[in-house]
């Protein structure tokens, strides 16, 4: 008894093939699914299988592991496959997809113009949330465009919120313009007042 050193060296871990890991994405045991999703890091052939399951996986911890693995790829295919979930009615899925997209500065920018033109204001709100954390030099420009032109006050308020850490005196006119566009929206007025303090 007492402090002991690990008795024998670790046995060689069996190598599980990507094909087996992809099969385990449908395992009834959630921990097996989570481990398989993590184990597929860097396996390009697993991207489609993971994307197929993002929208149907019911356990948030498993879905988060899938997103963690997918986001590393930062390819157009993954970005497009995740962006469709910005329109989801499931708030957890919507925000998890946005968090993943915000870590993909290579592929997401090409999608942004289309997302900013989406007819659904909720998609544009989620896009502003992605831009808040996307490390890309154009993020601030896109947010400014939303504040200046977007027809929906919730989108404008979210964009102002996203821009907050970067706001400077040069943005005063932009923000005051937003209030003039929506004179009857008390929440937007509140957001601008708070941001200009």
């Amino acid at each position: 008894m007492g402090l002991v050193r690990k008795a024998e060296p670790e046995p060689e871990l069996p190598v599980v093939s990507p094909e087996d890991l992809i099969r385990q994405l449908d395992d009834p045991d959630r921990e097996a699914r989570r481990a398989a999703a993590l184990g597929l890091e860097g396996v390009a052939d697993a991207v489609e299988a993971l994307l197929d399951r993002i929208g149907v996986e019911q356990v948030p911890a498993v879905r988060d592991a899938m997103l963690t693995t997918l986001a590393v790829h930062d390819t157009d295919r993954v970005a497009a496959g995740l962006a469709v979930h910005l329109a989801s009615d499931d708030a957890g899925l919507r925000t998890a997809a946005a968090e993943a997209l915000a870590t993909m500065p290579i592929s997401v920018p090409a999608l942004v113009p289309r997302l900013l033109e989406d007819p659904d204001p909720d998609v544009r709100v989620m896009t502003a949330i992605v831009l808040a954390d996307l490390p890309h030099p154009e993020s601030l420009t896109w947010l400014a465009v939303l504040i200046k032109d977007d027809p929906h006050p919730n989108v404008v308020a979210t964009a102002i919120d996203a821009l907050l850490p970067s706001l400077g005196p040069e943005h005063r006119e932009l923000l005051e313009g937003a209030v003039r566009r929506f004179p009857d929206d008390p929440f937007l007025r509140f957001t601008v007042e708070a941001a200009l303090r």
Binding site: M1, G2, L3, V4, R5, K6
Partner: peptide, 20 residues
């Protein structure tokens, strides 16, 4: 962790502890 277990933890003589 090892020092505090050895010096202060009464159960150290009753169980095996592996520290990595």
């Amino acid at each position: 962790i090892a020092l505090r277990l050895l010096a202060e933890w009464p159960h150290i003589d009753l169980v095996d502890v592996e520290i990595h």
